[in-house]
Design a binder for these strands. Structure first.
Lengths: 340, 340
DNA sequence: AAAAGTCAATGAAACGTTTCATCAACTCAG
DNA sequence: CTGAGTTGATGAAACGTTTCATTGACTTTT
């Protein structure tokens, strides 16, 4: 019963033509007040609701936005998605959520899936900025795309965090405390969020006139288990680090767990800085110093710019928005035990 | 160019009728092998992909599932959504994600939104089991609904956690340790997940032949800030609790924060048990004892049963699946300081 | 008073499918 | 050799909209 009444029924009930009913519904002008009223009455009486499917088909838009996120389970991403969703909902768009698990083949099939679903736009955080298959698939999709923490090499817009800045501050903090062996664990070099952190790390070392030990820089992938694995490996070496920055957003838990399991304590044995704030970082004992940024704000911005692109109200060159990061100092960092 | 080719083009290219092309595409029988091949060749050559919109319109199904979750930011819910999404994706469904923030008026408007979008089914965790407006809206929607942690009073299926069991074990643990003033903070009485915890709490007290102090039972709503507020309030009373169970899934952070701010330490001054496992609970110092259940499994089950309802392969009476909870003992509970 | 111009309403066409009643061709039994 | 039966292809109709070229009724201009 819900949306059984069609526009035809409305027209008939109001004694007007199909097209007229449509014009009333779409608030077009050029319709006599008396007629408008009659049609409106019919709409109310029948409880008419337009069929979104038929509208989409005719109009060629679905009012649907696709999102490909690595893993919705990470609170940071969830915050991003949530605020983007709110913004979109306000503009009468709806979100189709998918997760790539940071796996290229999944990303590819999700791109196809969403293309076939005819989303009006796409927000995504890809596995790679350069993979040619993915690049092609993104190009083929033919709708505006906003990339999260990825540099777009095509016409997409990018929302970039200033990871290098944050990382530099973090590493300099550790260096100033006397640390010389500082490990960096972050994601793949193929994407901005991984690469930029390494840039910041090296910049800090250069600033302090120190040289980087490349074996301490681990930039493989973003999956959560990597944090644990890399940290365990690092701690097992002859010269383990005295400080570590868990750059990837999902890595702090694994890194902390590895440290605990090695029987070390924070910050006495090893100093820790996390990438991205979280309940865990805030409420751990000791609370963990983190590089913070506001994904919720980024989500809103992404939604806004995407809508502007869709409506065509922004047809300027691809944008690269840079969002600030800040270092939130808590109690997880201290001077290293044995000064080098 | 992507999906520009229509079935008409395919038919023309293959030199067959529209209907024939359609039959090939839909793998219908009764089509000569030679023709099938020719059509297939045309499909490949043109890169034809069916227009999902037109299909939906004609078939009367959208292959889209709506989900209304309280807050995607909570990792537990995110895990639920993620596993549901995976299961649905495998069956070629796609998820439309919305968040109600536990606010009835939002829930109502989201129900309407998703109804208008013609979702084929709905997974949701409502604000109330009894609110008549919401009940009516759910009834009107006309598609199968699976409720998460809510008892459905209509034809919907319910996925229920055995909160009472878990809570009983939790409270009995505290009682056995010698606690007599145990606070319970959980969500609204209007829903299973709130109510059932209170049931378990009372059962534990009855089992141990103790009487409940109702001022220690706080079952208002599920929002995160409530955890902090209620805990702060409880600690400010003349006879503060010596143990607390943070029942609601979002409440542990707030409760812990309130305790920290009161200058108390866990478990020396107060014992804490959380509802739902999390990174925070696992990695806090000390690690927090929790009532655990597996939302990922629930998500899969919800998706499965929903699909069965949609396809009509399950037309039995509404189901109420009960999922087990277990008590995971960590180090956040100890004997109370001053024995009562 | 005729011509030209406005303003609103009309109804057919189109969007890209699926489905279904026909139809054509062929096979086989009598 | 005819009539019935079977198999497979056909093309129109339908799903519920929006849009657009027409049309009809008025109004204004010459």
């Amino acid at each position: 019963m819900t949306s059984k009444a069609t526009i035809r029924d409305v027209a008939k009930a109001a004694g007007v033509a199909l097209g007229t009913a449509s014009r009333v519904i779409n608030k077009a002008e050029n319709v006599a007040p008396e007629i408008r009223q009659r049609v409106q009455a019919a709409i109310d009486a029948l409880g008419y609701q337009p069929d979104v499917l038929a509208q989409s088909m005719r109009r060629g838009e679905t009012r649907t936005i696709g999102i490909i996120i690595r893993d919705i389970t990470l609170p940071a991403f969830a915050a991003f998605v949530q605020s983007a969703q709110e913004e979109l909902e306000a503009q009468n768009y709806v979100l189709m959520l998918t997760c790539s698990e940071d796996r290229p083949e999944r990303e590819l099939s999700l791109l196809n899936l969403l293309a076939q679903r005819r989303v009006d736009g796409l927000i995504m955080t890809g596995c790679s900025e350069s993979d040619s298959k993915l690049l092609e698939a993104r190009g083929q999709i033919g709708v505006p795309i906003v990339m999260l923490d990825r540099v777009a090499h095509d016409s997409s817009d990018s929302m970039l965090m200033a990871h290098a800045d944050g990382m530099q501050k973090a590493v300099e903090l550790l260096i100033d405390l006397g640390h010389r062996r500082i490990a960096l664990i972050t994601g793949s070099n193929e994407v901005h969020s991984g690469r930029d952190r390494v840039v910041g790390y090296r910049r800090a070392y250069r600033n302090k006139a120190l040289t980087v030990d490349n074996s301490l820089v681990r930039a493989r992938d973003f999956r959560g288990e990597s944090g644990y694995r890399e940290m365990t490996e690092l701690l097992a070496t002859d010269a383990p680090p005295t400080g570590v920055v868990a750059g990837g957003i999902a890595m702090l838990p694994g890194v902390v767990r590895a440290i605990r399991e090695a029987g070390l304590s924070i910050p006495e044995d090893i100093s820790v800085i996390g990438g991205g704030d979280s309940d865990l970082a805030r409420l751990a004992t000791p609370p963990v110093t983190v590089i913070r940024w506001d994904y919720a704000e980024v989500g809103r911005a992404a939604a806004k710019i995407l809508i502007d692109r869709i409506t065509g109200s922004d047809d300027s060159a691809p944008r690269q928005l840079l969002f600030p990061t800040e270092l939130v100092v808590r109690q997880s960092c201290a001077r290293p035990k044995l000064q080098a």
